[in-house]
Design a protein around this nucleic acid. Structure first.
Lengths: 200, 200
DNA sequence: TAAAATCGTTACCATTTATCAAGGAAATTT
DNA sequence: AAATTTCCTTGATAAATGGTAACGATTTTA
């Protein structure tokens, strides 16, 4: 149940058995089925969620009904709405299940308690945000100036796992293009491959 | 010299006089003039930089020579290349001075030492990355699905300070549009304003 | 102060991407 | 198994944005 969590934590910090047991007591397991919501827009987010198994994604919906995909989350990833968590304002995000999930949730009050009891857990939190920040910075770099085709290729190269587990119209929402455009791009790409490199 | 730094830190965590003195000893002051580089692509970034006074920006340059603006930094902000800092790989970013700067730099080894000596400083680092993460998440949300005009209006509303201190072609690079497009957008907007709301 | 570089704008045309509409394949539900 | 929904694709057209070039205005440099 907590295998992936501690694998993930131990990649970044050292934790004694005792510390691991303390941490364990504050995480609450939760199962969700496909299409269920972990968070609905309008609710305040007050837990961070670790994915032991399954897949989810967070998104906002604009006036036209277009989904803007903020994040996907698979095994070993964290998901939540840090803005709502910080400000206590109602979230503008939905977090929805893509594949049946085994989750571990930590209430933000308990997170603060854990920071005190297990300083290494706060170190982990810092490192986690640091990584998440880098991830987003790279994503922004990939969004700025890249054409839709280049963005898709970037995803294909850097995060192929997303392509294999997420429907294309959500990937379109992640890249900021329409599903139709993404479909056309993929069509073009497959037509380029067949006979190796045409210029040889 | 360290006024803004401690103002900024004390907004998030408590620090005794002693702790403040310890922190002070690890930060190295540095002055840079307009157009000088804090970091050049190819160099490894091993310091984080706090801006006491002035303005800088970080960017990458693609094959076509287009600048992708990653970040601006003004008084009270941090700047660096966290990816290069983490991986020790040569940075792909340039960090250049926009307005003469008074900076405070912390070497990453000293940052680790500070985390041990002053735990509250690590707490601050966590909070800082948390805020930075939220900032980027909002930026991504604004980039996805928003038209160039909407992106500009978003910037105008949320970060007007940027508009007042940064040349327009850099703002274009920040929004991911060409300077020409941004110019056209601004032109359209000024033509809409004149007689209040035309539908009244 | 003269020369050079930077910055912002505009015009024209090309390209990319979105939008609207329709239809088929596959998965899910009944 | 039939019906429904979801997912992906394709075509035709419209809208948004980019690329190139040229022009002053301003700032910086010599």
């Amino acid at each position: 149940m907590y295998e992936i969590l501690f694998e993930t934590l131990l990649e970044e910090v050292s934790l004694t058995r005792d510390e691991q047991d303390i941490i364990k007591t504050y995480f609450i397991p939760r199962k969700l089925k496909k299409r269920q919501f972990l968070l609905q827009a309008g609710d305040v987010c007050n837990r961070i969620t670790f994915v032991e198994k399954g897949a989810l994604y967070s998104y906002s919906t604009d006036e036209k009904g277009t989904q803007h995909i903020i994040q996907f989350a698979f095994e070993g990833w964290w998901i939540g709405d840090p803005y709502s968590l910080l400000t206590k304002e109602p979230s503008k995000l939905n977090i929805e299940v893509l594949e049946e999930c085994q989750l571990l949730q930590l209430h933000k009050d308990n997170e603060q308690i854990l920071f005190k009891k297990v300083p290494a857990f706060e170190t982990y939190a810092r490192i986690r945000f640091q990584h998440a920040f880098i991830f987003l910075q790279k994503r922004i770099e990939s969004i700025l100036g890249l054409s839709a085709e280049e963005k898709y290729n970037y995803l294909l190269k850097e995060y192929p796992v997303i392509l294999t587990r997420v429907p294309l119209h959500l990937i379109a929402g992640f890249l900021g293009v329409t599903p139709e455009s993404l479909s056309r791009i993929r069509n073009q790409l497959t037509q380029q491959i067949p006979g190796k490199n045409s210029s040889v």
